[in-house]
Simulated scan of single mutants.
Amino acid sequence: MDNIDPKRRSANMARIRGKDTAPEMQVRRIAHRMGLRFRLHRKDLPGKPDLVFPKHRLAVFVHGCFWHRHPGCARASSPSTRVDFWAAKFAANVARDARQQEELGRLGWNVLVVWQCDLKDQGAVATVLKSATEISP
């Protein structure tokens, strides 16, 4: 049972942002410290990737474990209320993510997904970004 009234719950959910989230800002800071230059949320690419490295043809999505259902992650728990609603919502998110990544691949872009829980080890994220940007275009 939800212990917050519906109006307050609705207000809380409405405040969840899709851009400039804390995990996204962390990845941006890491990339910037590495000297990598990127563009943000390019509208001409499927899914409007969070970071785009045009020189390397790399699109980076920073996914929250809860919303994008990180397999095997404790943060990908499911709410106990409105189970059918949340199952459909999460399934649609995962299907949309797969569709967008596949479309980017068809357009010749490499796709990298950085999960929110991966940001605990920023050195590992930097290593992944380094290896992904060293791939020849």
Rank of each mutant, 00 (worst) to 15 (best):
S131W: 00
T127V: 14
A95P: 00
F53S: 03
D50V: 08
A22T: 14
W86D: 06
D118Q: 15
H56M: 12
H56C: 13
Q122E: 08
R96C: 02
Q100G: 01
L58V: 00
P137C: 09
D84T: 15
A76F: 09
K48Y: 01
V128Y: 01
K19N: 06
H63G: 07
E102D: 14
A59V: 04
K120F: 12
V125S: 09
R96N: 03
H56A: 15
D20S: 04
Q100M: 04
H56F: 07
K130D: 09
A98D: 01
S131K: 04
R28L: 04
V52Q: 03
S80I: 10
R42I: 08
L104Q: 10
F53Q: 02
H63V: 11
I16R: 10
H32L: 03
N93M: 03
R33A: 15
A132H: 08
D97I: 00
G35M: 09
V83D: 05
E102S: 14
L45G: 12
H70P: 08
F61V: 04
H56Y: 06
H63Y: 15
D20V: 05
R57K: 15
K130G: 11
M1R: 14
R96W: 04
R106N: 14
V60N: 05
A59Y: 03
Q101V: 09
D20E: 08
T127A: 15
K55P: 03
C73M: 13
D84S: 15
Q26C: 12
V52C: 07
P6W: 00
E103I: 09
M25F: 11
A11D: 14
D5I: 13
T133K: 02
T21S: 04
V125K: 12
K7R: 05
P71E: 05
G105R: 10
K120L: 11
A74K: 15
V83Y: 07
S78F: 01
N93P: 02
G18K: 11
R17F: 02
R42A: 12
F66C: 06
A124T: 13
Q116Y: 10
R75P: 01
W67F: 13
K55F: 08
D20P: 03
V62M: 03
G64A: 10
H63W: 13
V125I: 15
L58N: 02
K55S: 12
